[in-house]
């Protein structure tokens, strides 16, 4: 039996309940969206230059952000596989990596 949420019979909330949102994952996705929005605005205001940095790859700002995200995921997975220590440590290491990659990568 579909519950009424707001005026719409299948309200947005009811339709999304199957997605089983949690506060941490929602925060994560909102953060990624905000980062993408920031990158877009930055690109409009001050178009970034293609360059070759520490990685030895020709990258744009967006590329470096994507590489940071992917290596962040890899870092966390390796951390989870290797130790039982809290994940925060890996997250802090990743933030450092993010800054390094975005600035000099």
């Amino acid at each position: 039996m579909p519950r009424r949420v707001g005026r719409c019979r299948y309200g947005v909330l009811a339709a999304m309940s199957w997605m089983a949102w949690t506060a941490p994952s929602a925060t994560f996705f909102v953060a990624v969206l905000l980062a993408l929005a920031t990158l877009t605005v930055a690109e409009v205001l001050r178009p970034g230059q293609v360059r070759r940095g520490l990685l030895g790859l020709v990258t744009t700002r967006g590329d470096r952000f994507f590489i940071s995200l992917l290596s962040g995921a890899a870092l966390h997975v390796m951390w989870l596989a290797a130790t039982a220590l809290p994940v925060w440590w890996a997250s802090i290491a990743w933030l450092v990596l993010l800054v390094v990659l975005m600035r000099w990568g």
Binding site: S17, W18, M19, A20, W21, T22, P24, S25, F29
Partner: peptide, 23 residues
Amino acid sequence: LMTVVNYSLQDIFDLNTRVFVGF
């Protein structure tokens, strides 16, 4: 993909009975 990430962080008995379990 978002849904999969959400599910992966919880112990789900049914969609109304679920516990956050982190990683």
